[in-house]
Design a protein around this nucleic acid. Structure first.
Length: 802
RNA sequence: GCCGAGGUGGUGUAAUUGGCAGCCACGCAGGUCUUAGAAGCCUGUGCCGCGAGGCGUGCGGGUUCGAGUCCCGCCCUCGGCACCA
């Protein structure tokens, strides 16, 4: 810290903070450029949505990032520490709908205010690199990437469901349709199929899983687990069942082909295409279709109500499938528990060895045949009646473990593991199946029927069909105005000068796509743009990117563990495949901070701060009352960064007290200190008194400890150990940090009884001797036989007596 | 149900990874200064006991000279996913 000639005696945070913030701004203190002589460090915090006000979660996020940035900067790294705005999205549009405010004006007003708040917090950003998603300079490149995706067939259009209010004829988001009713008019929300754009993230499912090993060391296990679950890889087999008296067949996915001799039915999802194809002439058609409609309708309600277990219902279609292994005829059912979106939308039902199938079979009186026996007594014994084919009365639950095959023709006697491999190969050889890997992950739907987002750069021409906007015509700009009624189609559809255009191919009149992109598109690559924020020829310069990225440390909320972080990993891999970058993973280290909670008034519950609960704390008020430094210090100190942080105002008071003490100390000594800083060389050890040497030792020990803590982002313990700071990050001198004299605990039978003093290099036998000679110790050892003495040099002595 | 992370004072937490359990704070109690209060500052503060001492890291066992830390078996809390075949 550079010490000014004139210092106030008392600690006035706003005065000090204002002075330094002004100084940093004028000096461009945090502006950085690529410098091949220096090692880069990219410290990134999740960019905020400009809602209008910073909240405590932001304060925590940026305080952690700023502490790390300072630490790395003082160590000599070239630190890139940028900020920007995730400035597209729903709230701006709602302000437009509710209050008639232009979304752009609303957004930019908010940014202006929040930028001021960040500056008042004193976060060390390179403000020249600030970006905002809603500016044409930025979303032009969203559109450019969309075109690249389209070229590579990673962007495609298909029918997909949205929440739809039939009264207002408008698309609703999940939040707008919570409880199954429209947020505005209260009408029941229905599902509607419309054409929407998707990114083929499923093409990258395997890489998203596989390349996790590159980041395993730097990401929280929790986040990786959540992503693994989300991707949901499952290996098994496809098996084709021919439908009797037709040319058709139904394909099922199973992880347990070894149980196929126990199949009692084929169950398909309500949406399965087979139903409309094959039931044309069936007498059962009406009944089946009525059931299908019933299932679709109740699925809709379940989306929003989140019920518990749903009863397994089904209906027999009258169709007969042939088990390709046994030749057995099986009925084909429609079941409400089979999902069209997963696997093939059809399953073979094996009630003896699958709980869901068991439940279904019991409910509909289908036979149950056991085909797997336990191989060890540790597996649960399940009653069954070997004398009968049908076990539906004997078996009380399904047996889902691996075991040994029975009642399975030539396969009987094999172990499940072996049978799975052999039977899969057999199916493949005979041409009625193959090994299969399925994923839970679905393609990324990016269409939004909204105004406030990046327009999708596609034109529909009657003659040429779907035509991408040529790169030279980017950006496709959002119009300045639209009608924000909140009803009808996407607001862009009502802006004639936007919609009506000419086809880039044939020049005839054509229409633009009126959907805009999901805001997760903006946040998938924003931190690459920070490295080259004003480039108008490309999303960024490859060389600059190669210097700064991947991100050294990313910090943000756990709520983005799956979507944002999975999308940005996907985006990175696509950028790699396009040739823009040469690595697989965008973020080397990730830290997910915990929530900031506060007591909810009238209860003793700690809940995340929110407007609706009325337990929010305004950072501005806190900064005004205690100063930014105290607020930031408290936030770092109060809990480990990944834990929940319980807001306690008395805690900030503690932080202020600490700062005041430090300030007072510096004030008392500042003249002496500035003299000392003039000296050419460090003073020799002899110049110090014993007390001064002890103080210097303590300082170096503290530096050592904080250095270790910072590397692991253990900021709470850093603060606990903190004493002072200097101009550059000091390197701890191990020699100076070493203790001159140690206090060595002496135990008798593992219980602490006394302490002896010794220098660090005291040899073992000397320690043993002084421990045994200690009066206090002798009162415990006298009259006992000494069995053993354990001496850990510099640590402890333990005497074992009998 | 499956997966993951955790259980340490009145509270938030700490413990150089097997070596003095409770650092640093909050809170509380006492003292000092003050006409009084606030703010400072000083002292104390795991529990039981006047004391010597005993007991203490969710519970029960084990390994070890020594366990908050390692092993086995339970219990509880939080988070994620969940009819995923």
């Amino acid at each position: 810290m550079r010490l000014e000639r004139r210092m106030d005696e008392k600690y006035f945070p706003e005065k000090i903070e204002e002075k330094w913030q002004k100084h940093w701004e004028e000096a461009g203190a945090f502006a950085v450029e690529r410098d091949d002589q220096r090692t880069p460090f990219y410290c990134l915090e999740m960019l905020p949505y400009p809602s209008g006000f910073l909240h405590m979660g932001h304060v925590r996020n940026y305080s952690i990032g700023d502490a790390l940035s300072w630490y790395k900067r003082l160590q000599g790294f070239n630190v890139l520490h940028p900020i920007g705005w995730d400035s597209f999205g729903q709230p701006a549009e709602q302000a437009a709908i509710k209050r008639g405010i232009n979304p752009r004006d609303w957004t930019e007003e908010n940014i202006k205010h929040m930028r001021g708040q960040l500056k008042r917090m004193g976060v060390s950003y390179d403000w020249r690199r600030e970006i905002a998603a809603h500016t044409p300079e930025y979303y032009k490149w969203d559109q450019w990437f969309f075109l690249k995706m389209y070229e590579r067939r990673l962007a495609y259009r298909r029918m997909s469901q949205v929440n739809w209010c039939p009264k207002e004829e408008t698309v609703l988001s999940n939040e707008q349709s919570s409880g199954g009713v429209c947020w505005r008019c209260g009408s029941p929300v229905v599902k509607k199929d419309i054409e929407q754009w998707f990114f083929r993230i499923t093409d990258y499912a395997e890489q998203l899983l596989e390349e996790m090993k590159e980041i395993e060391a730097g990401w929280p296990e929790r986040v990786l687990t959540m992503q693994r679950n989300w991707i949901g890889r499952s290996t098994g087999a496809f098996v084709d069942f021919a439908i009797k008296d037709t040319d058709a067949q139904v394909r099922v996915f199973t992880t347990r082909i070894d149980t196929i001799y126990g199949a009692n039915a084929i169950v398909v999802a309500a949406e399965h295409p087979l139903l409309t194809e094959l039931l044309e002439d069936s007498q059962l058609k009406t009944d089946v279709m009525r059931f299908v409609e019933y299932v679709k309708a109740s699925a809709r309600n379940r989306m929003t109500f989140d019920e518990e277990e749903v009863e397994k219902e089904g209906i027999n279609t009258g169709l007969i499938a042939i088990n390709p292994f046994s030749g057995e005829a099986l009925p084909v059912w429609v079941g409400n528990y089979v999902l069209m979106e997963y696997g093939t939308g059809a399953v073979m039902s094996v009630p003896a060895h699958d709980e869901r199938d068991y439940e279904f079979a019991q409910k509909h009186s289908l036979p149950i045949r056991r085909v797997i026996e336990r191989i060890s007594h540790e597996q649960k014994a399940i009653d069954h009646d070997p004398g009968r084919a049908d076990q539906s009365t004997a078996m009380e639950t399904a047996f889902t473990d691996y075991g040994i095959l029975v009642n399975s023709g030539d396969w009987s006697g094999k172990l499940s593991e072996d049978a799975i491999a052999l039977m899969t190969r057999f199916a493949e050889e005979k041409g009625f199946g193959e090994e299969a890997i399925t994923y839970r992950l679905r393609d990324w739907g990016v269409s939004r029927q909204r105004f406030w987002g990046a327009p999708i750069p596609i034109i529909y021409c009657a003659a040429c069909g779907t035509v991408p906007v040529p790169e030279k015509d980017l950006p496709v700009r959002l119009p300045d105005h639209a009608d924000f009624t909140g009803t009808g189609e996407s607001p862009l559809a009502g802006v004639a000068e936007f919609v009506n255009t000419t086809c880039p191919k044939c020049g005839e009149a054509a229409r633009r796509e009126t959907d805009t992109m999901d805001t997760f598109v903006d946040s998938s690559w924003y931190f690459f743009r920070y490295c080259d924020p004003h480039n108008d020829a490309a999303p960024f310069d490859k060389e600059k990117i190669a210097y700064w990225t991947p991100v050294s440390q990313y910090i943000g909320g756990i709520d983005h563990a799956v979507m944002h972080l999975l999308y940005t990993r996907f985006w990175t891999k696509v950028m790699r495949d396009i040739g823009l970058i040469s690595f697989d993973e965008p973020v080397k280290r990730l830290m997910t901070q915990g929530m900031v909670t506060n007591l909810v008034e009238g209860t003793n519950e700690w809940k995340r701060m929110s407007k609706s609960l009325g337990n929010g704390v305004d950072p501005d008020d806190m900064i005004a009352a205690y100063g930014a430094d105290a607020v930031r210090l408290f936030v770092l100190f109060a809990a480990p960064p990944e834990n929940e942080l319980r807001w306690q105002e008395t805690g900030i008071e503690g932080a202020v007290r600490f700062l005041r003490r430090i300030y007072g100390m510096v004030w008392r000594w500042h003249e002496r200190l500035s003299d000392a800083s003039q000296r050419e060389s460090a003073p020799a050890a002899e110049e110090f008194s014993t007390e001064a040497r002890a103080l210097r030792r303590k300082t170096h020990q503290t530096i050592q400890r904080i250095t270790e803590d910072f590397e692991e982002l253990h900021l709470n313990t850093s603060v606990a150990a903190l004493m002072g700071s200097e101009a550059r990050w000091p390197k701890a001198d191990e020699e100076l940090a070493r203790k001159e004299e140690l206090e060595i605990p002496v135990q008798v039978n593992g219980k602490l009884r006394s302490r002896i003093h010794a220098t660090p290099d005291t040899p073992e036998d000397e320690l043993r001797a002084s421990a045994l000679a200690d009066d206090k110790i002798r009162s415990f050892t006298d009259g006992h036989e000494i069995v053993k003495v354990i001496v850990v040099p510099q640590r402890l002595v333990n005497i074992v007596v009998r």
